[in-house]
């Protein structure tokens, strides 16, 4: 495996408050990495920097051989996709949400592909017409995840996406993630505090007080 992303001495500070200290990290293409650490340790900040949602204060971030600054942020985010904890769904129906990735790319909706994606997370085509207010927490999270992968990104960043889900929903998401990683070669980085997910992690990094350590 080769390095898809390399972070060198990445720092992030707000005023005089240092949130991340000299992060050095090499992310291999096709890796499935679990990230953990105490609340407020800087995990989400690090992942948001990787997702180009915020900019590092100093250091270097190389993606696919080029510094992050050389990419148009919009095009970059289509390759390095970030899924939020407790996502907001748009519009009125599930279909509105799954049409969004096509709309922003000025492409017609590929209905067959959308249906396949729904089935992969245990939902059916009938879900498309459901109003977002009628969805359960697990269904909302799964719809949000599909939005991120209808156009496959190279890296998928998941910020505690299974927090608050029941075991059945967690299992669906885990299996789907494995499928994304193994069959579609999507590099995944998942932030979690979940004991089961931490126990099952093959590769793990821990962020503590703004410093990153590869722990497994």
């Amino acid at each position: 495996m080769s390095a898809l992303m390399t972070l060198t001495k990445v720092n992030y500070q707000v005023g005089s408050h240092h949130i991340l200290h000299d992060i050095d990290w090499e992310i291999q293409a096709g890796a499935h990495i679990t990230m953990t650490g105490p609340s407020g340790s800087g995990k989400s900040t690090l992942v948001r920097i990787i997702a180009a949602m915020i900019s590092k204060t100093s250091g270097e971030l190389i993606f696919d051989g080029q510094p992050i600054e050389t990419y148009d942020p919009i095009m970059y985010r289509r390759q390095v996709s970030y899924c939020f904890q407790q996502p907001t769904l748009f519009g009125e129906t599930v279909a509105d949400n799954l049409a969004f990735p096509y709309q922003i790319r000025k492409q017609p909706v590929d209905t067959a592909h959308v249906q396949e994606a729904l089935e992969n997370v245990g939902l059916t085509a009938a879900t498309l017409t459901q109003r977002i207010g009628d969805l359960s927490g697990g269904e909302r999270q799964r719809v949000a995840l599909i939005r991120n992968i209808l156009f496959l990104p190279k890296i998928l960043l998941l910020d505690e996406v299974t927090a608050g889900l029941d075991e059945a929903n967690k299992t669906i998401v885990h299996q789907w993630l494995k499928h994304m990683n193994r069959d579609h070669h999507v590099t995944t980085i998942m932030i979690t505090h979940d004991a089961g997910e931490l126990a099952a992690a093959q590769r793990m990094v821990t962020v503590s007080a703004g410093r990153l350590e590869e722990t497994r």
Partner: peptide
């Protein structure tokens, strides 16, 4: 933020 994260 979510729309941006999706590449909008």
């Amino acid at each position: 933020l979510e729309r941006l994260a999706l590449g909008a």
